[in-house]
Write a protein that binds this DNA or RNA. Structure first.
Length: 373
DNA sequence: GAGTTTGAAACT
DNA sequence: CAGTTTCAAACTC
């Protein structure tokens, strides 16, 4: 009955130990990796805002109408079952309703294969630091998968998913009046551009602000030590990719900078790509929009690949974070188990052959779908 | 704790 | 695909 919280064997052959979190008795159904050290957290009443926000811990939702079967529900969205700490009503996101949960998930993923992918993706580090937090990683090295669309919050409040995730806005964002202290959209772009091509002119962008932003980012990285997070893993590695801002509330933005209103926006963002082709595109190049080169191995490797770490610290080689090579990864649990969906990533042609990419994504991403024991 | 604001998700 | 509605979290009082 609680198969969801038990061990799963990933197609890759890895045993996934999903510990039952006392916070979420139901455990994880998405395939999140449990960092056992965290899942033991005795804290039952952590508020999202002030908890470490273990990716797999119960989010303590309070849904009333969604039955916790929509992405509105944080638990559901995070791939965990609701449990005690939640104050939801009419919740169906429970192991008992496993089938419903799974079918709903499937449905949602069919619509948007990336729906359950981690929202924040670290760009700079592919795997070298999935477990160990690399203190050198900075917000600038992470990106929100889809970007935000803020209009009034200036990306300065947690309404903003980028800000909430502790990452700067990027070209993926369509925010207005972005002041994201983790990195403004245009700034992020120009910064990266600068680092990358050193001449990158970001259209109507403030070259003048570049320095500013660099410094700012620098300061930020110090102000937000927790921003090491976003362990880079394939987009679907929910567990390890989730941001873990220990004390976000205390994370005080460095200081306000001149508001820089939006500028260039790439209209060519493919939101939820459905085709595997797009998948790989997203995985491998979609992010290139902001980080065109650093993610590419061919981007002058000998160049001591710079990541977007503003403070100049070496963050990590960008060994193409997304096209993870299992062998290279050394079969890290974290990775294999949740790389679920991109056939191109896992190089598992067979898995993708019999089902479409979305299904593949779902099945691999969701242990339960594999056939809960 | 109640009410408001906000933006993502869902819907049309 | 764009516009609208629904939703629940974030925020304010």
């Amino acid at each position: 009955m609680l198969s969801a919280g038990e061990n799963f064997i990933h197609p890759g052959g890895e045993l996934l130990e999903l510990q039952m979190d006392d916070d979420c008795s139901a455990g994880v159904f998405l395939g999140n990796d449990h960092d056992s050290s965290q899942s033991n957290s005795p804290q039952k009443k952590r508020r999202k805002s002030d908890n470490g926000d273990d990716g797999e811990a119960c989010k303590r939702c309070s849904c009333k109408k969604s039955k916790c079967l929509k992405l509105y529900c944080e638990c559901f969205a995070a791939g965990v079952y609701c449990s005690e700490p939640c104050s939801c009503q009419g919740c169906l996101n429970k192991p008992i309703h496993e089938e419903i949960v799974l079918s709903t998930r499937k449905q949602i993923e069919f619509r948007n294969p990336l729906a359950f992918a981690p929202k924040v993706i670290r760009m700079s580090d592919a795997g070298q630091d999935i477990t160990g937090e690399d203190p050198n990683n900075t917000p600038a090295s992470a990106r929100h998968k889809r970007g935000c669309n803020c209009k009034k919050s200036s990306c300065l409040k947690k309404y903003c998913e980028c800000y909430q995730g502790g990452v700067g806005c990027s070209s993926n964002c369509r925010c207005e009046g972005c002041k994201n202290t983790f990195g403004k959209r245009d700034a992020a772009v120009s910064t990266e551009a600068e680092e990358m091509k050193q001449g990158g002119e970001e259209a109507e962008n403030c070259g003048k602000e570049k320095e500013n932003d660099l410094q700012k980012a620098n300061a930020q990285s110090e102000d937000h030590p927790f921003l090491e997070l976003v362990p880079i893993t394939p987009p679907f590695d929910v567990s390890s990719s989730l941001l873990k801002p220990p004390n976000f509330s205390s994370a005080k933005p460095p200081r306000p900078t001149k508001a820089r209103s939006n500028s260039s926006r790439s209209s060519s963002k493919a939101p939820g790509a459905v085709h595997s082709q797009k998948f790989s595109k997203i995985a491998n190049s979609g992010l290139n929009e902001e980080m065109p080169d650093i993610l590419r191995d061919d981007a002058s490797p000998g160049n001591c690949v710079k990541t977007s770490s503003p403070n100049g610290k070496r963050v990590s080689p960008p060994h193409n974070a997304l096209s993870v090579s299992p062998s290279r990864k050394g079969g890290r649990k974290l990775i294999l188990k949740s790389i679920p969906s991109f056939p191109s990533l896992i190089g598992d042609a067979s898995s993708g052959s019999s089902m479409n990419s979305s299904e593949s994504a779902f099945n691999t991403a969701s242990p339960l779908a594999l056939g809960p024991s």
